[in-house]
Simulated assay, not measured.
Amino acid sequence: MPSCKELRQELVNCMLKSDCVLIKRHTVKECLQPEHVNDVPKECQSIRRSFFECRRGLLDMRTRFRGNKT
């Protein structure tokens, strides 16, 4: 999804700096699971939400022709 590429990279960078990855030695995929939500900073959680909304906007027929809101 080309229009969400920047958000995805920002999320990965944020997750790589989190305690879940650095201290607890989980993968980024594992840290995105609900059981590790307390180990992920609020900043990464908000970026994740924005990435979800971006991806959803690409598939939502109502906004597909209008484009994603930025």
Rank of each mutant, 00 (worst) to 15 (best):
L16A: 06
N68V: 10
N38C: 07
V40C: 00
S46M: 15
H36P: 01
V21I: 04
E6N: 07
S46V: 11
R62I: 07
E30H: 03
R8W: 07
C44A: 01
M15K: 07
E35V: 11
Q33P: 04
E35C: 02
S50N: 13
L32V: 04
C14A: 10
S3N: 08
S46R: 15
P34Y: 06
S3Q: 11
E53G: 01
C4K: 02
R25Q: 11
N38H: 09
V21W: 02
P41R: 00
N38I: 04
Q45E: 08
L7S: 04
Q9C: 00
D60W: 12
R66V: 06
E6W: 05
H26Y: 09
Q45P: 09
V28K: 01
F65Y: 13
T27C: 03
F65M: 12
G57E: 02
K29Q: 05
P41C: 00
I47F: 01
C54T: 00
L16Q: 14
E30D: 07
H26V: 00
R48W: 14
C14S: 08
C44N: 00
T63H: 07
R49V: 13
H36Q: 06
I23Q: 14
P2N: 10
C14W: 04
R8H: 12
E43L: 04
D39R: 12
M61A: 12
F52P: 02
E6S: 07
D19L: 01
M1C: 12
G57F: 00
R56W: 09
D60I: 11
C14V: 07
C31T: 09
P41D: 02
K69Q: 08
G67S: 05
R56C: 12
C4G: 01
C14N: 04
D60Q: 14
R25L: 04
M61G: 13
L16Y: 13
F52S: 13
F51D: 03
N38E: 08
R64K: 15
V37R: 15
L32H: 03
R56H: 12
K29G: 01
K24F: 13
E53N: 10
S18C: 11
R62T: 11
L32A: 08
M15T: 05
F52K: 14
V40D: 00
H36F: 05
D60F: 12
T63A: 03
R48M: 14
V40S: 00
K17I: 00
C14L: 09
C31D: 06
L16C: 03
L16V: 08
F52R: 14
S50A: 11
R25K: 14
K5W: 12
E10I: 09
D39M: 14
R48S: 15
M15I: 05
D60L: 12
R66P: 14
L7C: 04
M1T: 10
R49S: 15
K42L: 07
S3K: 08
K17W: 02
L22H: 09
L7Y: 10
P2D: 03
L7T: 01
E53F: 10
I47M: 06
P41T: 00
V21K: 02
C54M: 01
P41Q: 00
K17M: 01
P34T: 11
Q45S: 13
N13K: 10
G57C: 02
M15E: 07
